[in-house]
């Protein structure tokens, strides 16, 4: 499974939406009604799955699936 697919799977599991149904540009908070704790859950799961450390300041960027994918790519590519 490539990086993007893996991120998608993690995010879908945590936000409780199927991979087929998730809108990659929908806002977790405004469109899906998630709270800040759920965003932290996504951050922790991504860090653990990819063995990366995301700067806490960048949590605020993790507002949609596409943003999470972009951020994860940035960190995993920097590691390579």
């Amino acid at each position: 499974m490539n990086c993007d697919e893996k991120v998608k799977e993690i995010v879908c599991e945590i936000v409780g939406v199927s991979k087929e149904e998730i809108d990659p540009d929908a806002s977790f908070m405004d469109d899906m009604g998630l709270d800040s704790l759920r965003a932290l859950e996504i951050l922790a799961a991504i860090e653990n799955a990819f063995g990366i450390t995301i700067d806490p300041q960048r949590l605020q960027e993790m507002t949609t699936l596409n943003h999470v994918i972009k951020l994860t790519r940035e960190y995993t590519e920097a590691d390579q």
């Binding site: 704790l37 759920r38 932290l40 859950e41 922790a44 799961a45 860090e47 653990n48």
Partner: peptide, 9 residues
């Protein structure tokens, strides 16, 4: 680091 923050509450 492996804990789920959602469970901490």
């Amino acid at each position: 680091l492996a804990v789920n923050p959602g469970l901490f509450p």
